[in-house]
Nucleic acid binder design. Structure first.
Lengths: 146, 146
DNA sequence: TCTGATTTTGCAACAATGTTGTATTTTTGT
DNA sequence: ACAAAAATACAACATTGTTGCAAAATCAGA
């Protein structure tokens, strides 16, 4: 008899779409991402998940999700990469996250500003850009309102 | 009798300017940065320095240099912050590195493109940017020429 | 140039983070 | 329901980053 997991099946379909086995930890981790607007670091996930989440499972799950194009990484200036859901269609191994990321210096939330497109750049001769990441730091919507 | 360290005194003056004691490890680390065009990760420094460099000393030296505005950090998408010399005048604790960073996917060198200025951004209402970091990935000058 | 005060270093011990291999469990397709 | 495939948990380990403190180097003033 299969365990009864009550979760919306958006997440389940997402996994199936990428030909990944539907497992409890994957569903839970996906839901963590869905349930909040920002990005999560590896550590956040271990904490938010309550008590028990094997560290190795989290590492491998995140790695799988990145490879499949379900989440993407966001660079930060400290040593903590954060992950966020890919809103748009990201094909396997090829992300199209041409939007700006915003890190709030007050509440430390990381946002994907999906509507802000990364600007064009004029690079010096010989440099060919394949991908451009824009990282803005400042005060977010929530924190500036108060 | 003081040990004889033969190094150009640009580095020494730089340290004095920031009221830092002139020590062997600081001079060596500064010279590592001077001797190459790109940025260095913590690990690079430990390796490049040959055999002996206490890890703790490197950590604390980098931290000091960042605080004093001698170097600045560059975010990356993997878990390895890199450091580069601040070309322009950076006051203590307040960096003016409004230039674009470029990471070559071929040779893995990180460049500061000092002449490429970060573009203006239109952020959604409520978001106030204090600092904007632009990170371009692609093929660098050196690698594209061949 | 000597000397005491200050700063920096090196070491040890530790904490946190990330990796790998393997046996066991779960999921999948038929 | 069953065999094959995939994912997990656990242990053991490697790497990376942190802290406290005694020893050493540097500095500033006489």
């Amino acid at each position: 008899m299969s365990k009864e997991i009550i979760l919306d099946n958006n997440t389940e379909e997402l996994l199936r779409k990428h030909r990944l086995s539907v497992t409890e930890s994957r569903l839970k981790i996906l839901n963590l991402f869905m349930d909040q607007p920002g990005a999560l670091a590896h550590g956040d996930i271990e904490k938010k998940a309550g008590e028990k989440f094997d560290r190795v499972t989290v590492y491998r799950t995140l790695q799988t999700f990145v490879e499949k194009g379900i989440i993407h990484t966001i660079p930060t200036a400290d040593n903590s990469v954060r992950y966020a859901l890919c809103r748009d269609e990201c094909s396997e191994g090829h992300h199209h996250d041409h939007h700006v990321h915003f890190i709030c210096t007050s509440c430390d939330t990381t946002y994907c500003l999906d509507d802000v497109v990364t600007p064009e750049l004029k690079l010096p001769k010989g440099y060919v850009a394949q991908q451009i990441e824009v990282l803005a730091k400042g005060i977010c919507n929530e924190c500036s309102g108060k």
